[in-house]
Design a protein around this nucleic acid. Structure first.
Lengths: 215, 215, 215, 215
DNA sequence: GATGAATGAGAATTCATTCAT
DNA sequence: GATGAATGAATTCTCATTCAT
């Protein structure tokens, strides 16, 4: 209903294959990035290439399905953390979980927030992510833990930025991202009195292709 | 003298074509990223494909030449800023210049700090960049503007992270990166009393291939 | 099972295409030598270029498959001739069959015994060829038909030499090679009392690249 | 007069460059075969690529000039050997000198007698070579040293065949060709009573392209 | 439904030859 | 005359996607 591909197949072997496929694709995309060939994913899943295209009408859509899963997992984590008593601690835990996803998954880094990923379901999931990030941020802001001009979207955007900062260190120092998470956390929690120079974004617009770079 | 490719050819037509080529490549890489084909760059420069390979023995080398120019420009800016009286202001200006390069150039973002870029000259330029970043950072640190546990390499790494944070906003709001630059600057200038959780990196190791992601 | 490429695909269309491909490649290599492009072979087989690479992972491998077939055919002929009562006649028939392959196939001439052909299966087939040549030669030697200092490897090497001797005559006189086969056969069967000046080779070492010529 | 390229340039630097070029081309072709690029030869000669084409209107023509020199050297050797008292010894020495050229020069092997080399001057030189080979062979034949049905052209053709026989051994055993020279020499000197099955060729026809294989 | 075979556009790179300097 | 810059056709190989089995 949300595309050309049935969300859930009826035959039991089809259900099983879809599961195998998602698992194999998740692992392969995570390790090798979006450039992996469909053939390799199919092989790793133990199915034929045609089966991939039966379940997902394009590579793009398969990738989107994987992203969706990760985004929703993070949304779930954030939602659960809303129950945590200490708003600052909750926000920190949420950011930790978010950066961990980026650190763990190469394809996720490569496409999240990039114009190449136009899938509407993913956009919706990103909106949900911003919402839960905003909820967590609002609590912390109200308690004075976070500076008043920082939003949930800022927080969501920072996740990828933190991973990117640490990226070249990670193979030698897999935990290096924690350093930059802390730096960023200090940046948003501290109130220096200065106001941030640019108004906070409301949505992540997934810019039109080829427009996110170059003047 | 700096490799297999003469840095500057002697004949006037070659000089002119090299210039056209570098300009076209810089623009094309900046706008479209490293995936652009040599054919497109050649076309844009108004020369044949073969001419590209006469001047640069591979696509990789052409890309490295472009990167080198940008890195050295930034190193020059940083060096000049060492003469600025206010260390904090100098560091801020340096970071602004750095992020601007990332924001302007898609290919730069795609390869800096990634294992795919193994060119030794580029590595040297990155070392120089870290050196000047360290010099600027040390001055600011000594004056108490920057927290004692932040290094020049941290600062260099942050440049890409700041761009990445703003990336998806830039097509709609080209100046949005300034917001995240400020956030990051606050993060490094403020001393909350907490110590950063991971020891500061000394070098940018240009991580071993295929190891910067995945578990 | 004999490498990365399945020796025989299971689907009938694949079997058919593989057959078309091998036939087209064999003919084209035979007529035009190793320099023919994959595109031409594909065209001649009536398939797309990609299909060639599906069946054989590189041009090199396709060529090796063709060579292997011819070598094994000759090994089979030699083995059958071991049952022939007259050892001299059997050896002669083997050499005839061998030179005929060289005469028929340009690519075979171009790569057999050359360092460019490193395929281990082909090397094994050449070893088998030397073995059967040695078996045939030994029988003839024991009967005094062949001089005592001539080996099976000599015989194997002579096959290419005989074709090469006649090569420039063949387009005008397709049977001219028989003349030089006879000359060579007389050379190995006669015992003049003189000893050959160089010790007989045991193996065909497939010389290290770039070392088979030049001082 | 024999082409578009002046046989001998008049300016002294041109004379010198032609010499440098021929020397460099001879060495390079000998070591690396006909596939070497003109650029490499030019570099080795210390001249520009354009200079090569000023002296020789195509790569083909440069190659022919080199071949010509080697053929004429061998013709000279053969002519001198006509003065040797022992006809068998003279023929043997001639063949030794001939095979040595093939062994020493990779490009020579690759093109002599092949349809790709259509140069008329080279054809004439090959005719001269056959003539001197015939003169040497005739003397030996008349003395009963060589069988009556072997001609000078047979001898000329055998030179390449002998090299080809030994080819794959030469990197490990640089003198291995002597073994096959002896075998061939025994073949032509012995008279077994059998008659060679194919009539002797008179000329080396340099077959039309693409016709020397196939069928 | 599953399979994997076929396709063919597209990429980087090489090099003989031409021609402006 | 000498130079070396420019050219562009040609090559091998990859891979998302389609479709016959």
């Amino acid at each position: 209903m949300t595309g050309t591909t049935p969300a859930v197949p009826s035959r039991s072997d089809a259900v099983r294959n879809r599961r195998l496929l998602l698992d194999a694709a998740a692992k392969t995309f995570a390790e090798r990035g979006v450039e992996v060939s469909i053939g390799e994913i199919a092989q790793r899943a133990g199915v034929g290439k045609g089966t991939v295209f039966r379940h997902f009408s394009s590579k793009e859509e398969l990738l989107a399905a994987i992203m969706l899963g990760m985004l929703d997992e993070l949304v779930g984590t954030g939602t659960a953390l809303l129950a945590e008593g200490d708003p600052g601690r909750a926000l920190h835990a949420f950011m930790t979980a978010g950066v961990e996803i980026f650190v763990r998954d190469r394809a996720f880094c490569e496409v999240i927030g990039r114009p190449s990923l136009q899938n509407p379901q993913v956009r919706d999931a990103i909106d949900r992510l911003c919402d839960v990030a905003e909820a967590l941020t609002a609590r912390a802001r109200e308690q004075g833990v976070v500076r008043p001009d920082v939003t949930g979207t800022d927080v969501a955007l920072l996740l990828g930025g933190i991973q990117r900062t640490a990226e070249s260190l990670l193979s030698a120092e897999p935990q290096a991202w924690r350093r930059y998470l802390e730096l960023a956390f200090d940046g948003i929690t501290t109130h220096t009195g200065r106001t941030l120079p640019h108004p906070p974004p409301r949505h992540l617009p997934l810019a039109a292709p080829a427009a996110d770079h170059g003047r």
